[in-house]
Nucleic acid binder design. Structure first.
Lengths: 179, 179
DNA sequence: TGACAATATGCAACAATGTGCATATAGTCA
DNA sequence: TGACTATATGCACATTGTTGCATATTGTCA
């Protein structure tokens, strides 16, 4: 249940509403731990029960009220405790690679198209990461926390570059194999 | 529910028992789509219900009887149909990267150890992939199906190499950041 | 001789994730 | 004026994944 910890990590930065968190996940930490807004709201309820966050409703006119969640001392301790425990290897699940396992049975024309789509997706992620980097990090004085995020972001950039090269190689090798 | 398809893909190779499949997942296709034996047995039951596989019990003395599953024509058609449909981006979930997001709150000494463990895991995967490659593929005449698996395997090798370099870079950058 | 690994299948319970829907208001664009 | 987007929260259900257990025999190692 590391979603709990991912949320707490976000809240070490600043108090946020569920909606804020959902956006933050979409634009930042979600690159390394994806979560939908439903997951986030559900998990926030549990965190409140476990007293790892404190929630305060803030009145708004027109729009629904915001519920702002603040990490508690207990929550901060939970993050530190979690951080010292071993992690598992990230789970591996990629249908596109499974399809490579049955090259004689699959529709290879469709597969090439899917690889092209995948390439575009990596390309757009790459652009996004680069944009974020130049906008928020380049040429700035950074706190340790920000440096950590930058390290993650740069790993993300390299990863996208690697994946683009990787799938292009796959396309070439498929041609060599005659499919 | 692409586990169903991953199993069917395995069975396009040859009929197998649940136990065989579990081993096959551990040693081959599971590099790209992990599954436990419990998941596999459960899914085999569903595949049988949907008539995508045919199951035959084979008597054995001493050991429990094997139940050998064979893909049906309907199953083969299901693989081809599935293969032409778009895939989604693999889900991203890595606690170690999440920890980078709270560098001021986490136990960085423990984190460095976790990165070392991760590096060893990638190293041993790399060795395994290379061993499989040299043992089953190098210098052999390959069918199209085998070529597909080799392409996946080589992508796996490059990926492990990339990840080793990536995490080593992270360690260096953490030092540069003073943690 | 006792412990353990390998072979072989599978249930039950629980935890985590994902999909679809529901609600409510304000502002923008065609 | 109607469609759409953004803000803001959340339930119900379905699927998927994990953990622990249960059974039963053979072979190997200490």
């Amino acid at each position: 249940m590391a979603l709990a910890e991912a949320i707490l990590v976000c809240l070490t930065d600043r108090p946020m509403s569920g909606y804020d968190l959902a956006k933050y996940f979409d634009a930042s930490i979600g690159f390394f731990w994806r979560a939908s807004h439903q997951q986030i709201y559900r998990e926030l309820g549990r965190l409140r029960e476990r007293e790892l966050v404190e929630s305060k409703e803030i009145s708004q006119s027109g729009k629904p009220n915001r519920i702002v969640h603040t990490i508690t001392d207990k929550g901060r301790a939970a993050v530190t405790g979690w951080s010292s425990k071993p992690v598992r290897m990230p789970s591996v699940k990629d249908e596109l690679l499974v399809k490579l396992y049955a090259l004689e049975t699959v529709d290879t024309k469709a597969m090439r198209e899917q690889i092209s789509v995948r390439l575009e997706q990596h390309q757009s992620k790459l652009s996004e990461f680069k944009r974020i980097k130049s906008r928020f990090y380049d040429g700035k004085d950074l706190t340790v926390n920000q440096k950590g995020k930058l390290i993650a972001l740069e790993l993300g950039i390299d990863q996208e570059l690697f994946r683009i090269a990787g799938w292009e190689t796959v396309l070439r090798k498929m041609s060599d194999a005659g499919v």
